[in-house]
């Protein structure tokens, strides 16, 4: 293993990472590179030897049955779960090197959860300004100003001083997205962000994600919304048995999959009426 000093995003490629793969030092344009990710929970192997590359401005959508490892992969990338083997590089920096400070890494990655996970004891505005003030040491007034500007953009400025339990699910999820956007993340991880929403509230969240794509945000999205995947994805990855079984442009993976298991999965989704 090579050593890894905290490298700023402007100096990629100074850390070649593990040299056991032919493309080991090719990071050109890559925001995220996962190699050989392995993760098990109490003997249950969830990810086995998984590889994933995400280029800058790319939107990668992960699909697959429950328990196929989509969420686990996202949590591993954000270092919320320690991996059992493999390497993860963010902007060319080896973030799974032993001496890397996970808090520093997470400052550059945004994550949005299925259950929103807003802090119930804080107002919407306090939820959003917590990280800028405490982590990025932005002055309070600046943080508030920036938060209000973002809230206004997503049409929630009038909710700034409400507590999360006064908001609808869709509004809460949009606040959660704003909460992570304010830190200008290099990479945004979205973990089934519409799965806990009533059907009529899904649209407002998906619209927001579509806007983010148009602004060039690099994203990895785990979702069950196949119609949305088709619209927003640059690449769709089908996870099965802890690795990516098939990946490619959405029309191909969702419309004409090569693998029989991908076809079977999509068939089940169609039968459940979830493919628009």
């Amino acid at each position: 293993m090579t050593t890894s000093e905290p490298i700023s995003p402007t100096t990629p490629r100074s850390d070649p990472g593990p040299g056991d793969r032919p493309d080991a030092d090719d990071f050109s344009g890559l925001v995220l590179r996962c190699r050989g990710i392995r993760k098990s929970f109490r003997g249950n192997l969830v990810l086995r030897d998984l590889d994933l590359d995400v280029a800058e401005h790319d939107v990668v959508v992960l699909i697959g049955a429950s328990g196929s490892g989509k969420s686990t992969l996202l949590r591993c990338v954000n270092l919320l779960e320690p991996i059992d083997d493999g390497t993860i590089h963010l902007d060319g920096e080896h973030i799974t090197a032993p001496q890397v400070n996970p808090d520093r890494v997470r400052q550059r990655i945004g994550m949005v959860f299925q259950a929103f996970n807003l802090f119930p004891h804080m107002t919407v505005l306090e939820n959003i300004t917590l990280a800028p003030e405490r982590v990025h040491k932005v002055p309070r007034a600046t943080a508030r100003e920036k938060a209000m500007a973002l809230l206004k953009r997503v049409g929630l400025a009038d909710k700034a001083h409400e507590y999360p339990d006064r908001l609808s699910g869709g509004q809460q999820q949009r606040v959660a997205i704003v909460r992570t956007l304010i830190n200008s993340p290099r990479l945004l991880l979205l973990d089934e962000v519409t799965s806990a929403l009533d059907p009529e509230l899904v649209g407002e969240v998906l619209t927001m994600i579509r806007d983010l794509k148009n602004e060039g945000m690099t994203m990895v999205i785990a979702t069950h919304e196949m119609g949305f995947a088709r619209q927003v994805a640059d690449r769709v990855c089908f996870l099965e048995g802890g690795r990516i079984l098939e990946q490619g442009p959405p029309e191909q993976v969702l419309g004409d999959p090569v693998e029989a298991r991908t076809r079977r999965f999509l068939q089940r989704i169609i039968e459940a009426g979830r493919l628009s």
């Binding site: 954000n78 259950a115 917590l130 990280a131 990025h136 830190n183």
Partner: peptide, 11 residues
Amino acid sequence: SQVAAARSLGL
């Protein structure tokens, strides 16, 4: 999940 959300923000 509250801890996960906070840590994911870099706290």
